[in-house]
Design a protein around this nucleic acid. Structure first.
Lengths: 208, 208
DNA sequence: AACATTTTTAATCATTTGATTAAATAATTT
DNA sequence: AAATTATTTAATCAAATGATTAAAAATGTT
C-alpha cells in the first residue's frame, strides 16, 4: 500500500504554510495580517516574503490546496464505478461530516473567498467536468430513465446534499445560538445527520 | 392600510448608509475601505465620520439592520397562529427565495461576519426565543405526538429548510460553475425550488 | 579553516487607511 | 441683515501594514 505518512515537516517554509492555513481559514484573506501569520508560525516577518514573495502568493497556494483537499472526496466517490447510487450518497455525506467536524472553518473560508475571485478558481479546478461527467451523474440519469428517481435537474440534488451536509457548519453560530448548543452538542447533532441525511435524500429522490 | 412608502431619502446620512450597505454586503467589513463607501455615496470621506463617528459604528448599524430585515420573515411566519405547518413551510421558502434573488449577497455577508462576533448578536436578537418558543415549534411537536412527523430534533428540520433554501445562494459561484449557469439560469433554478423544497420537506418529515 | 551559499534578524520604507482638523460654505434663527 | 448653527471640503495625521534591505548567523562546500 502506498501509505504516505503525514510526516511532521518542521521546515521554516512548512511552518509558515501551516500557520497561514490556520490564520487564513479562520479570518479570511482581507482580515489576515502577515504579522499574524508570522507570529502564529513563530518566525520573523521577513521570512514570509523570503519564502513566498507576498501575502497574495502565499494565499493562492493555501486557497488552491484547500480547494483540492476539500473536493477530493466528491471526486473520488463520484467517479467510483463499484458503488451504487445509494452507497455514494452515504459515503459522501459520511466523509464530509467527518471532515467538517475536524475542519469546520473550511467551507466558510472557501465560500467567502470564492465570492472575490469566483470564476477562475472554479474553472481551474475543472469542477464542471469532475461533477457533471462523473459516473455518479450517469447513474443518476439512469435512475431517472428507469423511473426510480423523480425527474429533476441533478443540480437540485447536489444543492440538497450540499445544503443539508455543509450548510449547518457554515451557519453553526446561528444553529448553536437558537439551539443553545455547546460545540460538543453541535457535533453530536452533526453525527446524527450522518445516518439521517442519506435517508432524507432517498425520500426526496422518490418524490413524485 | 398603514402603507409606509419607501420614500427616497436622499439626505447625506442616508446616502452614506445606503452606500455602506452596498459595499459591506459585497466585500465584508475587513475588505471594505471607508473610502469605498465615500466614493459609492459620492460624498467627502470626512462626512462618514461626521455622521457615524467610525467605520465600526457604521458597520454595526448596517449589520443589525440587515439581520433584523433578514429574520423578520421567519419571525412573522413562525408566530402566525392561522397557517398550518405545511403552509408555513411554503411561505418561508417562498418569501426567502424571493428575498434572496433580490439580495443574494446577504446570507454570505451575515454568515461571514457572524463568525467574527458570533454570540453577542445572535443573543441580542433573541433568536433562541423567537424560534424555539414560536407557535411553529408547538405545531411541530404536536405533529410528532400525533405520529404525523418523524420524531427528530426540530433543529434538524430548521437546518434542512435553511440548507436547501439559502445554501444555494451562498454557494452560487460553485453551482454556477459546475452547472455552467448564467445568473438568469441560476435564478430560474431557484424559482423552481420554491415549489420543490416544500414537497421535499414534507417527504422528509414523513420519513420513518 | 577558508570560502560561498542559504537562512534569519532587526531596522526601515512606502502605502494604505481610519480618523481629525481648521477653514469654507450653506442653512437656520434672531 | 447679522449672528448662530449645521454641513461640507481639502489637507493632514498617526497608526497599521505589506514589503525590502543590509547585515548577521547558520549551514554547506572545497
Amino acid at each position: 500500500m502506498a501509505n504516505k505518512k503525514p510526516m511532521a515537516d518542521d521546515s521554516t517554509e512548512n511552518k509558515i504554510k501551516k500557520a497561514a492555513r490556520t490564520v487564513f481559514h479562520k479570518k479570511g484573506f482581507a482580515a489576515t495580517r502577515t504579522r499574524d501569520i508570522a507570529d502564529e508560525a513563530g518566525i520573523n516577518l521577513a521570512l514570509l516574503n523570503y519564502y513566498f514573495r507576498s501575502k497574495e502568493k502565499l494565499f493562492d497556494i493555501i486557497m488552491l490546496e484547500t480547494m483540492q483537499g476539500f473536493f477530493k472526496s466528491v471526486k473520488d466517490v463520484f467517479n467510483n464505478e463499484e458503488n451504487s447510487l445509494e452507497n455514494k450518497i452515504e459515503l459522501v455525506v459520511s466523509n464530509y461530516i467527518d471532515l467538517l467536524i475536524e475542519y469546520p472553518e473550511i467551507p466558510m473560508f472557501l465560500l467567502s473567498e470564492l465570492r472575490v475571485h469566483p470564476d477562475e478558481l472554479i474553472a481551474k479546478m475543472g469542477m464542471k467536468e469532475i461533477i457533471m461527467k462523473s459516473y455518479f451523474i450517469k447513474q443518476f440519469q439512469q435512475g431517472i430513465s428507469d423511473g426510480k428517481i423523480a425527474p429533476i435537474n441533478p443540480l437540485h440534488f447536489i444543492m440538497n446534499v450540499m445544503g443539508m451536509t455543509v450548510f449547518p457548519f457554515v451557519a453553526s453560530p446561528i444553529i448553536k445560538g437558537i439551539g443553545h448548543l455547546s460545540p460538543k452538542a453541535f457535533n453530536a447533532l452533526m453525527m446524527e445527520r450522518k445516518a439521517l441525511i442519506p435517508k432524507w435524500i432517498k425520500a426526496i429522490l422518490k418524490t413524485k
